[in-house]
Design a protein around this nucleic acid. Structure first.
Lengths: 218, 218
DNA sequence: ATTGAAAGCAAGTAACTACTTGCATTCACG
DNA sequence: CGTGAATGCAAGTAGTTACTTGCTTTCAAT
């Protein structure tokens, strides 16, 4: 029984992954059961025997994708903000880029299939919460301007990450910075916006060396 | 002949507008010719007689929408940056919000129908160019930090506008600021990021009064 | 009044959709 | 060996899709 079930899980898993790939390419309406079966290398009937219906298959697919979400974390007590945020930002970008096609499709189909929102929202909204907490701690410790509008800056930062992650591959001209430099530059702009970096601020100027403009140190 | 043609233009226009509405709701695959004909109040055959095919109809629709693009402009010589940018930002947001559903759908279908990109790109990319020029002028005049990373700040600002315009109605929890305050706050964060606003800067502090934090003036 | 273009209407086509049914095949386990 | 669950295969169903055809109606211009 157990070995038989492992074989069943195998085809189930193959169908789920194939469904994700086909959905990422063609969306819900375009992801026909026939295409998914071919992509999975299984018979189309097995698809209905395993999941019952196309809708149930996609529900299972979304849940299985939502299950595996190892989001990056920020330290509780801020150290080198530029460094810590750049690493975190790069990990966050990589994480969201993994699902960019699926996110794009789910986003476009949000009005018709709102349940898809959970998958694409959890990542950015958790990231926003973490970043807001981190920035507030920076303010508390005196490393950021306490008059800064942290919620708005965080919202703009997350929007930018989201936009970069899901747009860069299809609209490259909209992103002037190369992919490898982007995290550090995004973080620099963010830190300047909350008064934690820049010419007239208390932030240690050497941090800027990690980014791009070295004249600040002079 | 001319009057007859005006009647023909009428149905043609009705079909085009109906196609835009149905496409905004259901996407390309979901926007069936039957639905469009019903929405336009015309016979389905008239649709094919006028445009030949569904693909040709949508091509015409995208072109007719790309034609009407009165984007807001920024003054050549910067005056009150906070005020000017807030007005511009509000107009830009309103402009993009007009097409939010269509943009969402086109964005999700970019891989399958790349020609849709032109419609949704022209707005943001023109806005980015205008904002970059404005910010650079601010730097030149000495109203902004010349060490600021203007291209990145502009890219993040446009991403944030784009994200707000097309996401706020479907993911309201992702936008903490009320719709009417958003432009001023976005602009404040942007100006701080390029060193044109805030505690330790040369920007006239009264500008901040238009925004949200009044303690800066004290 | 006649003409002619534009539109409606009913019907049909071929392909595709999700989904079903019945039967044959495989193959690990007892 | 044989039992039984998982899978494959062939065929079919009912509905939808884009698109066509043939005919009738409307109605402004001559």
């Amino acid at each position: 029984m157990t070995l038989l079930r492992s074989a069943a899980m195998d085809t189930r898993e193959r169908i789920l992954q194939a469904a994700a790939r086909v959905y990422a390419q063609h969306g819900f309406r375009g992801a026909t059961t026939r295409l998914i079966a071919i992509e999975a290398g299984v018979n189309e009937v097995s698809l209905f025997r395993t999941f019952g219906s196309k809708a149930a298959l996609f529900e299972a697919m979304m849940q299985s994708h939502a299950a595996s979400l190892p989001l990056p974390t920020l330290p509780d007590v801020p150290g080198d903000a530029q460094l810590e945020l750049t690493d975190w930002c790069a990990a966050l970008l990589a994480h969201m880029r993994q699902w960019r096609s699926i996110i794009r499709k789910s986003f476009g189909e949000l009005e018709e299939r709102p349940e898809a929102a959970t998958v694409m929202c959890e990542g950015p909204s958790c990231a926003a919460t973490a970043l807001a907490a981190y920035a507030t701690r920076l303010q508390t410790v005196g490393l950021a301007d306490e008059t800064a509008d942290v919620p708005t800056a965080v919202s703009m930062f997350i929007s930018s990450m989201f936009g970069d992650a899901i747009s860069r591959d299809v609209l490259p001209h909209a992103f002037p910075q190369p992919e490898e430099d982007a995290p550090a530059r995004y973080v620099s702009v963010f830190l300047r916006a909350i008064g934690a970096l820049g010419a007239g601020d208390a932030a240690p100027p050497r941090i800027a060396q990690d980014a791009k403009d070295r004249r600040v140190t002079a």
